[in-house]
Amino acid sequence: MDKVDIKERIKQGLEIREITQTQLAARANIDKGQLSSYISGKYKPRQNNIDAIASALNVSEAWLMGFDVPMERVPNKTESVQSSSVSTQCKEIIEVCNQLSPHNQRKVLAYSKNLLSTQQMEDALLPNAAHEMNPTEEQKKHADDVMKDDKEWL
Rank of each mutant, 00 (worst) to 15 (best):
V4I: 15
L116K: 14
I16C: 01
D51W: 00
A54F: 05
S80H: 02
Y43R: 15
L126V: 01
P45N: 09
Q23V: 10
P70D: 12
I10N: 03
E95Y: 03
L14F: 08
N76D: 15
E152Q: 13
A56T: 04
D144P: 00
A54C: 07
T136R: 03
Q82H: 03
L115R: 14
D51S: 12
M133N: 14
E8P: 00
S87K: 01
K11P: 00
E18I: 00
I53P: 02
S60E: 02
A143I: 11
V146L: 10
D144L: 08
E95W: 01
D144Q: 08
R27I: 07
M1G: 15
L126F: 04
V86D: 01
S83C: 02
L64V: 04
N114K: 15
S84C: 00
G13D: 03
Q89L: 09
N49E: 03
P45G: 07
A129S: 04
E8G: 05
T136Y: 04
N114A: 15
H103F: 05
Y38M: 06
E79M: 10
I19F: 05
K3A: 05
G41E: 09
Q139D: 11
I93R: 03
S55E: 12
I53W: 02
I93A: 14
Y38V: 05
D5N: 11
A25K: 09
Q139M: 06
N134R: 09
P102I: 07
K32T: 12
S55A: 12
P70Q: 06
S37L: 08
L100E: 14
I50K: 02
E138S: 10
R17W: 01
L24C: 06
V74D: 09
Q12R: 10
H131M: 11
K91F: 07
C97I: 11
P127W: 08
M1Y: 06
S80N: 03
L126S: 07
R9H: 10
A143T: 09
P45C: 09
N114L: 14
A129F: 12
L109W: 11
I39T: 09
L14M: 08
K77D: 13
L57Q: 04
A54R: 02
Y38E: 04
A129G: 01
L125A: 15
D5V: 05
V146K: 02
K44V: 07
Q12W: 08
Q139F: 01
H131E: 06
A129L: 15
S80M: 10
N49R: 12
L35F: 05
V74P: 00
V74L: 08
K77A: 10
V108L: 15
A52Q: 07
G33I: 05
R106I: 07
V146T: 05
E132S: 13
L154G: 01
I50C: 05
D150F: 12
I6N: 06
D51R: 13
K3V: 11
A62M: 07
Q12V: 00
K107I: 15
K140A: 03
S40Y: 04
V96R: 12
K3W: 02
V146E: 02
L64I: 07
M133Y: 11
S60Q: 02
A28I: 06
I53F: 04
